[in-house]
């Protein structure tokens, strides 16, 4: 269960303090597919960053399966991100100097599973599931944007997280690739029971979700 209580994020700008997320309460049940929608600047990504332990809230709590993640120490929060959350960003987020298989294995290695053959076997298997079995040794620049995004999904799954956070993961992809990527994410949600939270502009994608959270001006409107 994911729970947000009184969640608030203020940014200091030249024009003063701006509330990106203004005291928001939210609950998403374990294993659900939830979509967060809203216009640009509505606070979707800021909310997602706070839920994922990427951006410290100005106020409020985020609880994942009973753990108040922002009360964790720096290292414990890093471990939490590493083990419990998988991220799929809206940009190509693979390290360019690493092969696809290294990129996928990286979270496991950072978590202390460094260099084990089992880690690499798992990374290869995940890339195979994403249809990239023939590109294990390829560098990110040697594959397409859609293939890169699939590799990112494989990386998000390497530590078998409880929660996948996907922030507009298909925004820069063509329609067909978008469908393929969403199929992969939904398959993960259905087959593994992993909670999937998707931030999107695309209402058609959001309509497939079990829970839709509509945000405007940092607050839930529907």
């Amino acid at each position: 269960m994911l729970s947000c209580r009184g969640l608030r994020k203020d940014y200091v700008t030249e024009r003063g303090e701006v509330a990106a997320v203004a005291g928001l309460d939210l609950e998403i049940a374990t294993g659900r597919y939830a979509a967060i929608i809203g216009r640009s600047g509505s606070g979707k990504s800021s909310l997602m960053a706070m839920i994922g332990g990427l951006s410290r809230p100005s106020q409020g709590q985020v609880t994942v399966d009973g753990t108040d993640i922002w009360s964790l120490s720096e290292n414990a929060l890093a471990a939490f991100r590493n083990k419990r959350i998988g991220y799929v960003f809206q940009f190509a987020s693979l390290l360019p100097t690493l092969r696809l298989v290294d990129n996928v294995a990286l979270p496991a290695m950072l978590g202390g599973d460094a260099g084990s053959s089992a880690t690499y076997a798992r990374a290869a298997a995940l890339l195979g599931q994403m249809g990239l079995g023939g590109h294990l040794d390829a560098y990110p620049s040697e594959v397409s944007a859609g293939e890169q995004r699939r590799a990112v999904i494989a990386r998000a799954l390497i530590n078998e997280p409880a929660l996948i956070l996907a922030d507009e993961p298909t925004s820069d992809l063509d329609e067909q690739t978008e469908i393929e990527i969403m199929d992969e994410l939904l398959a993960v949600n259905r087959e593994r029971g992993t909670t999937l939270i998707l931030v999107t502009h695309n209402l058609a994608l959001a309509e497939q979700a079990e829970q839709i959270v509509h945000i405007a001006h940092g607050a839930i409107v529907a």
Binding site: K83, Y87, S93
Partner: peptide, 8 residues
């Protein structure tokens, strides 16, 4: 990105 995927 490294921090996001768990780098301390």
């Amino acid at each position: 990105l490294l921090k996001a995927i768990g780098a301390r």
